[in-house]
Simulated scan of single mutants.
Amino acid sequence: MVYMAIVKRLDPHIEEEVTIEIDGVEFTGFSFICPYKIEVGKSYPVSIGFTILNELIISEIQGEKKEIERIGLGYEYYIRGLLHEDTIDAGIIFNDEDEYFSDYPELMDKHVEIKVDRISIEFIKTTTEKR
């Protein structure tokens, strides 16, 4: 899913680190795909995913929580929401590009919590972008 995100912060030391806001939810992620220059305070179309460096930790939760919670001061997050075949709906839709969720058919259409090592942000190139 493509969202319009406001760039809130660019890290001066880590080129890929960017803090964005989507629908009032602010989080920090890594943008490995950014086909144009971005600026703080401006809005851009993005797609959101996640990165698992070691092992996916996923568990069913009680209730219908949809949220993103940062773990400490690092880049890890808990993503809580409704699990689908290739997405998790945490109020913001996260794409499962690496097909992790296919290993958990028993959790489909249930509310779950996953722990991710970082959130990935892809800035989408549009036909109106200057070349």
Rank of each mutant, 00 (worst) to 15 (best):
Ser43Leu: 11
Asp109Phe: 06
Gly81Glu: 06
Asp103Gln: 14
Glu129Ile: 10
Ala5Arg: 02
Lys42Leu: 06
Lys130Ser: 06
Val46Asp: 07
Gly74Lys: 07
Ile68Val: 04
Ile20His: 00
Ile48Leu: 00
Ser102Tyr: 12
Phe101Arg: 03
Asp109Leu: 07
Gln62Asn: 15
Ile6Met: 13
Met1Tyr: 08
Phe32Asn: 12
Glu99Asp: 12
Pro35Ser: 03
Phe50Lys: 03
Ser31Gln: 02
Phe94Pro: 09
Ser102Gln: 14
Val112Trp: 00
Ile88Asn: 01
Ile22Leu: 01
Gly91Met: 00
Gly29Thr: 04
Tyr77Leu: 06
Glu16Val: 13
Ile22Phe: 02
Ile14Asn: 10
Leu73Phe: 14
Phe94Val: 11
Asp98Ala: 14
Glu15Cys: 07
Thr126Met: 10
Ile52Ala: 05
His13Pro: 12
Leu83Met: 15
Glu129Leu: 10
Val116His: 08
Leu73Val: 15
Lys37Pro: 05
Lys110Ser: 05
Ser31Cys: 06
Ile88Arg: 01
Ile20Ser: 00
Glu76Arg: 13
Gly72His: 02
Tyr44Glu: 09
Glu99Asn: 12
Thr127Val: 13
Asp98Met: 14
Lys130His: 09
Lys66Met: 13
Glu60Ala: 05
Ile22Gly: 00
Cys34Val: 13
Leu82Gln: 10
Pro12His: 04
Thr127His: 09
Glu21Cys: 01
Thr51Val: 15
Glu122Gln: 02
Ala5Trp: 02
Ile88Asp: 03
Asp103His: 13
His111Cys: 11
Glu17Ile: 10
Thr87Cys: 07
Glu15Asp: 11
Ile121Phe: 02
